[in-house]
Simulated assay, not measured.
Amino acid sequence: MNPLPPVSEITQLQIECVAKWHDEPIANPYDGFKHLVCRQHEFNYRLWHEEDVARSPEANDERIAGVKRSIDKLNQQRNDMIEKIDDAITVLLAEAGVGDTSALPINTETAGSAIDRLSIMALRLYHYAEQRDRTDADDDHRAKVGARVELCQVQHADLSHSLQTLIDDLFAARMQHKTYRQMKMYNDPSLNPEIYRAKK
């Protein structure tokens, strides 16, 4: 038995949260696995908008430096949440009675990584639609962006289907699941030479 919500519910959560968070304070009303998905999605949402600020021609050096530090922190939190999602799947697989799968094939990316990619796609779809529907844009702009929206929708559907297949295979013991540790070095004061040298 697969205890995870269908991928269609995960992607709907991501799409709905993007729209809500542009009009309302960020909130996470979900429980269990969906709570983790929403939390991970929040870090991508915050990252997306900090990246916009970092590229603003009106941002001065001090502002960009502050945004860069924020981006580093958010990216670390985003990757930590990918691991937590995959760790939660490990627990759910054990609870579902899925035994040792170490001899089975493994996917090129984890379910958590695919959920992260779908989160980014939800953000991309929202902001492309926003650009497509700008009242100050000309027809060429709207046509170009509209074509990109259609392509993103196809890619979103493809990845959603692939993730659902992967999850089904994991719980049917047809594929192996692992949490791949991100092992980021830049935020670790013992591994980033620019940090540990500055402390000497």
Rank of each mutant, 00 (worst) to 15 (best):
L47W: 01
Q12T: 14
N2T: 05
S8C: 09
F43Q: 10
V18I: 13
G32I: 08
A19W: 04
F43E: 10
P25H: 08
I15P: 00
A27E: 15
L36H: 06
A27M: 01
H41Y: 08
E16H: 07
A19T: 14
R39F: 03
I64S: 08
H49G: 14
R39W: 02
P29L: 02
V67P: 00
N2W: 06
H49S: 12
A65W: 00
E24Q: 15
V18M: 09
N2E: 04
L4N: 07
E42K: 09
Y45G: 07
P5F: 04
R46D: 07
I15R: 14
C17H: 12
S56Y: 04
D23S: 10
N28W: 02
Y30M: 03
R55N: 10
G66L: 02
A19N: 13
R46E: 14
A54M: 11
H49M: 05
E58P: 00
I15C: 08
H49P: 06
Q12V: 03
E58K: 10
H49I: 06
Q40H: 13
I15E: 15
A54W: 00
H35C: 08
T11V: 15
I15M: 13
R46I: 07
L36M: 01
M1W: 01
E51K: 07
T11C: 08
P25G: 10
D31M: 05
M1L: 02
P6W: 00
R63S: 11
D31A: 15
T11S: 05
M1S: 14
